[in-house]
Design a protein around this nucleic acid. Structure first.
Length: 434
RNA sequence: UCCGGGUUGGGGUAGUGGUUAUCCUUCAGCCUUGUGGAGGCUGAGACGCGGGUUCGAUUCUCGCACCCGGACCCA
């Protein structure tokens, strides 16, 4: 017996069926918006992640030297890869570029609830538009994806913020602020105490009075964003506030506004975000962590050597999403369904196979005996796979040129002439012959 | 990397420093070449791995692996 590796999981058919339904639903929502699927490698050069995130990131990677002496890593995220792809074909791709991809990623990190070392994410990105409609389309896609899965506005919320509002406010203080550190402090603010939060802001360069003032500013209501403009008095903050308002207005037209809450305390830890950022939370708070997040990252493509190309995206992870779906009791049922089981008894393979093939041609899920088992065992198996209808192709039935059609749920059955099954019927069941 | 709690047949469990490790369920076969969700019989299947203490360890102890939480981190 071998153990699996920590943070790597096996999915058996029942659970995999539920996962498949969720993934298909997410991707179907993306396809309706015209996001096109891309396929991407599992390995990239380690240097790409170091350039984007710094040398420390190597500790979090499955990184190694390949047999050709290249330093490579299992992809921990998709963004650098799609950025690389955009840069490589920048001229020939028509804008905006709208891509979707569901895939595993790997990070060497500590396992905890909703976090594994191998995990699946659906990445959805738009490249080439800085318009608020692009941000709003990402929000609308995310909202559709969640409501398609059976969630309602009672169960989740998008906490929407804007990096440039935060950065612009820090800039407007008469202090030498380490903006990145200050934004990280904001990102942590909900998890730590008030005093610890202020301490972090002071470490980033504010005075205690300024920290308190900043804290008050962030609590501003959705209708009072202009107060921030008045306070800062800079074009940067004014532009950022206008942009955020425009995104929310577009989101209203796109049907996503009702899921959005202004939450300037939401910052996302990541350095490369530049504009609107948002995180999806469980409204009941039972799932304590952010379920997923997204936002605008306008500088990344340029930093990868491309033409300046604005970008905005979101990446729901299946593991945290499943926590939310299970909490809301809309995780798909983990059970098989089978349309038909064709039961053979005696040497009836030839006729049974004909029936099986006819039914499969109609697109149904059909099983038959491949283990030479007894009548009782076959029926038992048909029950275990939740077969809806059992077609008994037994010697005795065929001797009369008949088959027996049995409805498993009720146990009712009837005889049908073998050449009338399935006949012209698309999906014949017991009721058609009773 | 750190903190806490775990690990006994496939799943859920009882128990013990000493004969054949308990029960439920599951699975397979048979009763039943003709009827599953009922019953009977038979069978399969476990002390996570390694070291130490001991005459003897599933039990005590140490290390490791894996699991469940949490901290840090979160691309």
């Amino acid at each position: 017996m071998y153990d699996h590796l920590k943070g790597f999981r096996d999915f058996y058919p029942a659970e995999m069926g539920a996962r498949r339904e969720v993934i298909d639903s997410l991707e179907a929502a993306a396809r309706r918006y015209g996001f096109r699927e891309v396929g991407t490698p599992a390995l990239e050069r380690t240097q790409m992640y170091v350039d984007k995130s710094g040398e420390e990131i190597v500790e979090e990677l499955y990184a190694f030297e390949d047999k050709g002496g290249r330093e490579v890593a299992l992809t921990p995220e998709l963004t650098p890869t799609v950025a690389r792809m955009v840069v490589a074909k920048q001229q020939e791709l028509s804008k905006p570029i709208k891509w979707v991809s569901t895939r595993p990623f790997w990070r060497y990190e500590q396992v905890q609830q909703g976090r594994f070392r191998e995990f699946y994410q659906t990445n959805v990105d738009i490249f080439g538009s800085s318009e608020p409609e692009a941000d709003a389309e990402i929000l609308a896609f995310a909202a559709d994806a969640l409501t398609d899965l059976g969630l309602t506005g009672e169960e989740f919320e998008f906490r929407v913020s804007h990096r440039d509002i935060l950065g612009g406010l820090f800039e407007s203080f008469d202090a030498d602020v380490d903006t990145a550190a200050a934004i990280r402090a904001v990102d942590k603010s909900e998890k730590i105490s008030h005093n610890e939060y202020h301490d972090l802001l002071v470490e980033a360069g504010l005075s205690y009075d300024q920290a308190a003032e900043f804290d008050d500013l962030l609590a501003v209501g959705e209708d009072d964003l202009d107060e921030l403009v008045d306070f800062a008095g800079t074009d940067r903050v004014e532009a950022a506030v206008t942009n955020l308002q425009n995104v929310l207005e577009a989101a209203a037209d796109f049907g996503a506004r009702e899921y959005c809450t202004l939450s300037l305390e939401t910052a996302r830890g990541l350095d490369y975000y530049t504009g609107v950022v948002f995180e999806c939370f469980d409204s009941t708070g039972e799932v304590s962590r952010s379920v997923f997040g997204g936002g605008r990252y306008d500088d990344l493509i340029e930093s990868f050597g491309g033409q300046p190309t604005p970008a905005v995206g979101v990446a729901p992870g299946l593991a945290p999403l499943s926590l939310l779906l299970q909490r809301a009791d809309v995780w798909p049922e983990e059970a098989f369904t089978t349309d038909y089981y064709v039961l053979q008894i005696g040497d009836t393979r030839s006729e049974a196979a004909r029936i099986v093939r006819d039914l499969r041609e109609r697109g149904h899920v059909v099983e038959t005996d491949v283990a030479d088992r007894s009548f009782g065992s076959q029926l038992n198996y048909a029950d275990s796979i939740n077969a809806e209808t059992v077609v008994v192709a037994g010697e005795q039935d065929l001797a009369n040129d008949e088959v027996t059609i049995k409805e498993m749920e009720s146990g009712d059955q009837t005889q049908v002439p073998v050449d009338e099954f399935p006949g012209d019927l698309e999906r014949p069941t017991y009721d058609d012959f009773a």
